[in-house]
């Protein structure tokens, strides 16, 4: 699965511009699912399992998009001003490299504002290595993703865009491994999560599921002087109880916990005080959907060097596969 993750994180796909990531997933899943379609917003909806079986319509969602930047202005000397796509932290941005969808590379610089405080985004610029506006290989409205190599540290993986390509990899594996499920399982690869869970809202309306589960990353409390949070890298998938956008359905939490215990998969319970996932949108779709989330613990989320534990990733696949193999009674 490491290769799959490595391939996925290296594709650029800021919110709204997920096409390349989506195409990769389409190719990779070909022959492994019963149906595949792309909805009008760009969500990739795959389906597997008996349509009229004894089971539920289950929607699993992992988002294709990543945070990035978008050009707002080109100045006469060939510098591009930009704004953020999704939750980009200014403190992680100076010195970062970006890659535009047309292949242009650039580096982010800042006006001399002093190094003691964080420089705001509007005092930064992208330098693409030219000296005149007329030579600029990018224009206003072009988007770029952060660029950083993938590092395999053995137990742990480091890269940009692990949020949420690691979730995408987990969902791909689940769709491949699911064989005899009684459920009609929709593996949905969503767009525009980072700008307000927009893809999942439309996809859930279309799929109209009985149960919704997001697969995404969550923060941890296991780094020096971290804010109190009982999630650590390497202690297993996190079953979300609450985040700042939703309260998981208590029945879904109990179902996941029972499944983890039965299969002897280590797990943690997650209360996230900042951030949310596609599950938020799924839960309040149509007449309401029982919803929850399996989170992969991740350090340095929304930086160009996010870190996950590889065993947590594998266990997330295991947990969901064994949950979906059996009948579900909430």
């Amino acid at each position: 699965m490491k290769e799959l993750i490595q391939d996925l994180v290296q594709i650029a796909g800021p919110s709204g511009y997920e096409a390349d990531v989506r195409e990769y997933v389409q190719k990779d899943l070909k022959g492994h699912v019963d149906e595949m379609k792309v909805d009008p917003l760009g969500n990739l909806i795959t389906r597997k399992g008996p349509k009229d079986g004894s089971g539920l319509n289950v929607m699993l969602a992992a988002h294709l998009d990543e945070i990035g930047v978008i050009v707002t202005h080109l100045d006469d000397n060939g510098f591009a001003r930009f704004t953020t796509v999704g939750g980009v932290f200014p403190r992680n941005t100076v010195g970062a490299r970006v890659k535009f969808l047309n292949g242009t590379g650039g580096v982010i610089g800042m006006e001399p504002t002093g190094y003691s405080s964080v420089t705001p985004i509007n005092q930064m610029y992208i330098d693409v290595g030219v000296t005149k506006k007329s030579e600029m290989p990018v224009k206003v409205g072009d988007v770029a993703a952060f660029e950083r190599t993938f590092e395999d540290l053995g137990k742990r993986l480091v890269s940009k865009a692990l949020d949420d390509r690691v979730g995408v990899a987990v969902l791909i594996e689940i769709m491949k491994q699911l064989k005899d499920t009684p459920h009609n399982v929709f593996g949905v690869f969503t767009v525009q999560e980072e700008v307000g869970v927009r893809g999942a809202a439309a996809a859930a309306y279309g799929v109209d599921p009985d149960l919704g589960i997001a697969i995404d990353v969550t923060l941890t409390g296991d780094t020096p002087k971290a804010k109190t949070m009982d999630v650590s890298l390497g202690k297993g998938p996190a079953i979300k109880v609450k985040d700042s956008g939703m309260i998981s359905d208590p029945r879904v939490v109990a179902w996941m916990e029972a499944g983890a215990k039965r299969a002897r998969i280590p797990y943690q319970k997650e209360i996230l005080t900042g951030g949310s996932t596609d599950a938020r949108a799924i839960q309040i779709t149509r007449e309401g959907v029982p919803a929850g989330c399996v989170s992969i613990p991740c350090r340095y989320v929304h930086s160009p060097s996010e870190m996950v534990d590889y065993k947590d990733v594998q266990d997330s696949v295991k947990l969901l596969v064994q949950l979906l193999k059996r009948p579900i009674k909430l």
């Binding site: 939703m246 007449e287 309401g288």
Partner: peptide, 16 residues
């Protein structure tokens, strides 16, 4: 339900 968090109870009941 859930008014204090998501306003999702009212949203989904009105839809239904």
């Amino acid at each position: 339900t859930q008014e204090e968090e998501t306003l999702g109870g009212a949203l989904t009941s009105a839809f239904e």
